[in-house]
């Protein structure tokens, strides 16, 4: 097998183990609630419901879903089997809507918001960080503290400030939602325009904070690379500065890719809360609603989905990284 193939298999194995741990945590942690989870849940959700028939029906549904009378490990297998067959439970808040249906409606919004925002912020941040390290002087003196300050602003804080400034005071952008609620989703220009207008502020607040964090990391990596021996050697062999800058950029960029993998969990978390501020119809807002209504199946569906998405993103980044950094391949060769 090629060195890269081995690398992929190894990574795949580790992510598979991590996936099982994530699923197990998602299964176990909510079951640490005192008492029989289903009766607690049912008690909470049926407050106000008087028809005993309904309560019974709800109870039976959940008892069947959780396999409540079985031992824990059997419950876990039922849980995994249900997950694999697409049965992620039934929402309490929007009973009897299946959790998967709610999540499916939210996923496109969240991906459409976060994927471009994180990528754009990551790219701009890295370029700015490299420039700050390379140009030094005024550039560094301005970019660095600003980036450090922006990076210290939590995602949702910036989101709130932007909401206040651009939506409320200046009225340039709408305050809530993913599109005008008077409209019926369609493929018309008008609808797309509305989606874009609603997209702008949450997008920008994620981009800005991401830029801050990435610029700081990239600046540090670039300074480190600029001080390395190969830069001096290349200079003394007469290679022009612009080309050396390219060497440095590339080499500083590689750890930034791993950095992206490691920080993507935090970024996604921050962005989800950003959605709440703008009542953006993605996973984050649903989770907010679910927590307020103590809609446990939906909460657990959201957390599981987020964990899965972050794992998948990490795995993808690891594969790309292994492909482009020659050092990984060499390390694999040594193992053989």
């Amino acid at each position: 097998m090629s060195a890269y193939g081995k690398y992929v298999v190894k990574k795949f194995f580790w992510y598979f183990v991590t996936l099982i741990v994530a699923i197990a945590l998602n299964f176990l942690l909510p079951r640490m609630i005192e008492g029989n989870p289903v009766s607690v849940i049912v008690a909470q959700m049926t407050q106000g419901m008087t028809e005993s028939d309904t309560i019974k029906r709800v109870y039976d549904t959940f008892a069947a879903e959780f396999g409540i009378d079985q031992p824990l490990h059997v419950q876990f297998f039922i849980y995994v089997k249900n997950l694999l067959t697409g049965n992620w439970g039934t929402s309490f808040g929007l009973y009897p809507k299946p959790v998967t249906e709610i999540l499916a409606s939210a996923i496109p919004w969240t991906i459409g918001l976060q994927l471009p925002a994180i990528l754009v912020g990551w790219i701009i941040g890295n370029v700015l960080g490299a420039v700050a390290a390379y140009r030094k002087g005024v550039f560094d003196k301005v970019i660095f503290p600003v980036a450090l300050f922006v990076n210290s602003i939590p995602f949702f804080t910036l989101a709130i400030i932007m909401l206040y400034a651009f939506a409320l005071t200046l009225k340039w952008f709408p305050m809530h939602g993913g599109y005008d609620y008077q409209m019926i989703p369609s493929l018309s220009w008008e609808f797309i325009g509305s989606v874009l207008r609603h997209h702008t502020l949450p997008f920008l607040s994620i981009v800005l904070v991401t830029i801050g964090g990435q610029a700081i990391g990239m600046r540090e990596m670039s300074i480190y690379e600029l001080n390395s021996d190969y830069v001096l050697y290349s200079k003394l062999l007469g290679i022009r500065d612009s080309r050396i800058a390219r060497y440095v950029f590339r080499n500083a960029m590689l750890p930034q890719i791993t950095g992206l993998a490691l920080s993507i969990g935090t970024m996604v978390g921050g962005s989800l809360i950003c959605e709440i501020v703008f009542s953006y119809p993605g996973i984050g807002t649903w989770m907010f609603t679910a927590i307020r209504q103590l809609d446990y199946p939906l909460i657990s569906g959201c957390t599981l989905l987020i964990a899965l998405a972050v794992l998948l993103a990490n795995f993808t980044i690891d594969l790309i990284y292994g492909w482009i950094d020659p050092r990984i391949k060499a390390a694999q060769m040594e193992d053989q």
């Binding site: 021996d229 190969y230 050697y233 290349s234 003394l236 062999l237 080499n251 020659p326 050092r327």
Partner: peptide, 20 residues
């Protein structure tokens, strides 16, 4: 001049080459 007329072998040749 650099590299052409006057060339140079650095002290730590191990790290003198760009790893990527």
């Amino acid at each position: 001049v650099s590299g052409r007329e006057i060339s140079y072998i650095p002290q730590a040749a191990m790290n003198a080459l760009n790893p990527t």
